[in-house]
Structure formats: C-alpha cells, structure tokens
C-alpha cells in the first residue's frame, strides 16, 4: 500500500485496491494511479493505492466523509463491465476473518470498519468485472479497454456531490 498522506478530515478518498500481479485484479490500483495527479481531479480528493492491505485499510478509511473504492468484482457480467453501487446496497459476504488473516479481503475490511464505526458515511464502489485473475498476466483486453471509461466514470463521481 502506498504511504498514507495526511487525512483530509471530511474529504473524499478514492481507494484503488487489488494486486498488480494478479491479472485484472490490478484494475483498481491502475485506476488510482491514473487518477493521481489527473488535471481534472477536484480539490479535496485523496487518491490512494490500497494494494492488498486487507485490514490495514480500516485506519486508512477512518475520518473521510466519502470513500470511492475501485476493485475487480466478479459480478457475472461480461469482462470489463463497470458497475457502480453503494456499500449499503451490496450484500457483503465476509470471509469471516476466521480462517487466516492472510486471506482477509476488502469485504472483511469494510464490514469490520462499519462494525467499528470507522467507515465513511458514504461508500461508493466501482466494480469491474475481471476477465482473468491469474498470476503474472497483464490486464485482459476487455479490462484494458474499460480502464479509460472507468477513470472518466470516477472523475464524474468525484465531481458530483
């Protein structure tokens, strides 16, 4: 995970998560990288590469008014399809954290953050349907093509209040 800058209390956090080494799982991180320093990025927005930090994401989320999370999400759609949904509409299926903390994922982190009252009041998730999630593969062509659209959709989200 990238080094955390000063939290902008009450601001917006864009959090791209995933592994750069796992095919289309990289899409969230790549989107965050494209947004960082983007000329159209509104002021008061912090963009972070959340990598695979799992529960380490909880303190990162704390203190923001709004979090926009970007990740590869298997949704049974065509590869590259982008879907926006708000956290409270989603049906989280936590891993449970019981098996191993090597395996905690974004959902566990969000559920735990919510339980602890550390989740921003507004959480929007941009899910991208992955084509493949294998080691050491670049983005699939469909997800590669979706990346500019994803960045545009995120900028649109960030401009809206």
């Amino acid at each position: 995970m990238a080094h955390q800058p000063e939290t902008v209390a009450g601001g917006t956090l864009v959090l791209g998560v995933g592994s750069l080494l796992m095919g289309d799982d990289a899409v969230g991180v790549l989107a965050a990288q494209r947004l960082q320093g983007h000329p159209d990025l509104p002021p008061g927005v912090t963009v972070l590469d959340g990598g695979t930090a799992g529960l380490g994401l909880i303190p990162v989320l704390d203190g923001y008014r709004r979090a926009v999370v970007v990740d590869a999400v298997p949704m049974g759609l065509a590869p590259g399809a982008i879907r926006r949904f708000v956290w409270h509409e989603a049906r989280p299926i936590p891993h449970g954290g019981a098996v191993s903390l090597h395996q905690t994922d974004l959902t566990d982190a969000l559920v735990l953050a919510e339980t602890l009252g550390m989740l921003p009041p507004e959480v929007v998730i941009f899910g991208v349907q992955p084509g493949h999630l294998e080691w050491d593969r670049p983005l699939s062509p469909a997800v590669e093509r979706a990346l500019p659209q994803l960045v545009d959709a995120l900028l649109g989200e960030l401009r809206s209040e």
């Binding site: 936590p94 449970g96 903390l101 735990l112 339980t115 602890l116």
Partner: peptide, 12 residues
C-alpha cells in the same frame, strides 16, 4: 467469539 469480526461487535 469465533473470530475478529464478531469481536468487533462484542469488544469494539
């Protein structure tokens, strides 16, 4: 409790 997730509810 069975794991850290219920622990967050019982002992935040």
């Amino acid at each position: 409790v069975g794991s850290v997730i219920p622990l967050a509810t019982s002992h935040p």
